[in-house]
Nucleic acid binder design. Structure first.
Lengths: 354, 354
DNA sequence: AGAATAAACTGAACCGGTTTAGTAGTGCAC
DNA sequence: GTGCACTACTAAACCGGTTCAGTTTATTCT
């Protein structure tokens, strides 16, 4: 059982003892030498390093992990309905960003997908209690997020994407999403729109909330009322339903700011199916700048973020924390960039016929 | 250094020795009892189990891993240009599927993203040599894929998505993609089309090749020539370029079968920008059934697969292999399902003016 | 020259499990 | 009542590293 026929590293992996024996020193000396710690002379150090290299020694992460009580891995739990997972361009790029930071430090990413509700907390607990990870990244932060307390209890280092609204001891890496939404609203205001609606994402998410608040604030700043709000949940179906609700209103909007691209796409398609012209009768903006949005008819005006950078920085902050070299402060990333395409245009002269 | 203040499990994790002491037996006995192995009487076993439970004992994966030379994790290396990662709805769902199989067995997924070319092989090597994973899943299999040889050399169990064209000792989990493409072509033939083009994905991928071959075969079966092929690379830009090339031809196609949704979307948008009507002048089919395709104008006729199932089965096969309970044969999954939407229609009476 | 100090290095304990070799005790046959 | 097989269990080695407590040797101080 000890000899797994599949186990790699050739016929038998070379251990630190092999190196010690070959170099004529003790295991301890080899450990010191290989880790750049004091306790060995330069001569001996060089010799040990050479022997280790010649023998093709590779540290065993398993052994290292056991003795140093570390996993050399970071955890990410993604809690989404699996069928919706593929619709969001955020995660793949975000994960790629994490990886760029991790590979430099010989850390890996342990990914969990929590499908069932409540499974998320179990995922985090398991990951930490099993010692799979040394720290975790918290995405999709919710209003009064219970995970903050859980991670606190588990005493595991963490980073959050954006600062939670409940008190959190963990550093946050933040993007000023408000600025993006404000830019979109200002763009529409400049085009003459006065009835600018918002189809919001799930309001249990802080990014759902902050986008809504930014929309309302920007309208207030322009002296406009923010009564044209329709709640949705970031899904295409939700986007359609919210759009339908808004377009049924007597004072139907001439522009809709959506909280993400998928809802905007679905909403645009729905509006068009009603015979409305985009942007002739209705201007539409999204959020995320998903690749496909430039191929819609019309191409979607949206907000471009840099999820890869976000992932990279989040991982970096977490690694710094583990190394004890993190100041503790939050990190601010560049605000989203407004990408103006053909789905937004001047306000129509008069409201289109219903 | 030994006592990481962040390390979870309360003030100090309870070990097998604690349990042994509390139950008045030796470490070995506890190990036997906890693993359901013979060597302890039923009475003692029950007592040990109870004590372990009362004390809240959790096995340390790190220790377990060291002594049993296992990682209790599976590896997945995704090699895509990070900027393109978000465009493919396949991976998130695929990964979610993997997770559903893993969580049942207390395995986790270690995910690597190889951005630079060549980094992929290094990723696999590192994952295996560091003992991070017990097996790996191979996606995006290429023509004469060099990774097969690498994994063979590393002596790591693996599963491939679809059977590689080079000889591979690893079980494959396959979807008959050909059947999907054939269904799409037959659908177009039934609509009267005779000039049916194909915009292919990267021909270095076996799925790129097999989709092309299926297209050619289906045309041949219908007595049609398969000269309308344009090479692309699964990207939107590539799809546009290939579409442009096809539409410039004297015998321009009346229908185009794309190797994926993104290229189809971009191609459709491009054709429309040329003033062509879809499907009036040109019918279009995609592949993947990405969520957004139903919100295009017109909605896209495409092929629906079940990436989640694919992930689940692939992981399951790999786990069986690790447990030694896998027969060794390949597994066939249901063929893609043709989803007919408005982007395909009857062949136009005469070729549209150029 | 002798004592104090530091550097270089060794041996062993340790992390928390698994597994092997060996021991004690029981039951049964002859 | 001795021999044998079998069960139930223990002690210790082991996985491959890290780290602590000493020991030896060289250097410096007085």
């Amino acid at each position: 059982m000890q000899l797994n026929p599949f186990e790699g590293n050739g016929p038998m992996a070379v251990t630190i003892s092999d190196v010690a024996h070959a170099a004529g020193v003790s295991k301890g000396a080899v450990s010191y030498a290989l880790n750049g710690q004091p306790g060995v002379s330069q001569d001996t150090r060089d010799r040990i390093l050479k022997v280790a290299k010649d023998l093709g020694w590779k540290p065993s992460l398993r052994a290292k992990g056991l003795s140093s009580a570390k996993a050399y891995a970071l955890g990410l739990v993604v809690a989404r309905d699996p069928s919706l997972l593929g619709t969001d361009p955020f995660f793949p790029a975000f994960i790629a960003g994490i990886e760029t930071a991790l590979t430099e430090h010989d850390y890996t990413l342990v990914l969990s997908v929590a499908t069932a509700p409540g499974a998320e907390e179990r995922c985090y607990r398991k990951l930490v209690e099993n010692g799979r990870v040394d720290g975790v990244i918290l995405t999709d932060v919710r209003h009064n997020d219970s995970r903050i307390g859980l991670l606190n209890e588990l005493k595991v280092p963490a980073v959050t994407l954006n600062r939670p609204d409940a008190s959190s001891p963990f550093p946050a890496v933040s993007v000023d999403e408000s600025a993006g939404i404000v830019a979109a609203v200002e763009h529409l205001v400049a085009l003459g729109h006065t009835r600018i609606a918002h189809v919001g994402g799930g309001q249990e998410y802080i990014h759902g909330r902050s986008r809504r608040k930014a929309w309302a604030d920007a309208l207030a700043a322009a002296g406009l009322a923010s009564d044209l709000f329709a709640a949705a949940d970031f899904t295409a179906a939700g986007g359609v339903a919210a759009t339908a609700e808004l377009l049924r209103r007597r004072d139907r909007p001439t522009a809709i700011v959506y909280a993400n691209d998928l809802m905007a796409t679905a909403g645009q398609s729905y509006a068009q199916s009603l015979g409305l012209s985009v942007p002739g009768d209705l201007s539409i903006t999204g959020y995320d700048n998903a690749e496909f949005t430039q191929y819609l008819n019309p191409p979607l005006t949206t907000l471009a973020t840099d999820p890869m950078l976000w992932g990279r920085v989040a991982a970096q902050v977490l690694l710094n924390q583990l190394a004890g070299t993190h100041g503790g402060g939050d990190t601010a990333l560049p605000a989203p960039r407004l990408v103006v395409r053909a789905s937004t245009g001047p306000v129509p002269d008069r409201p289109p016929a219903a």
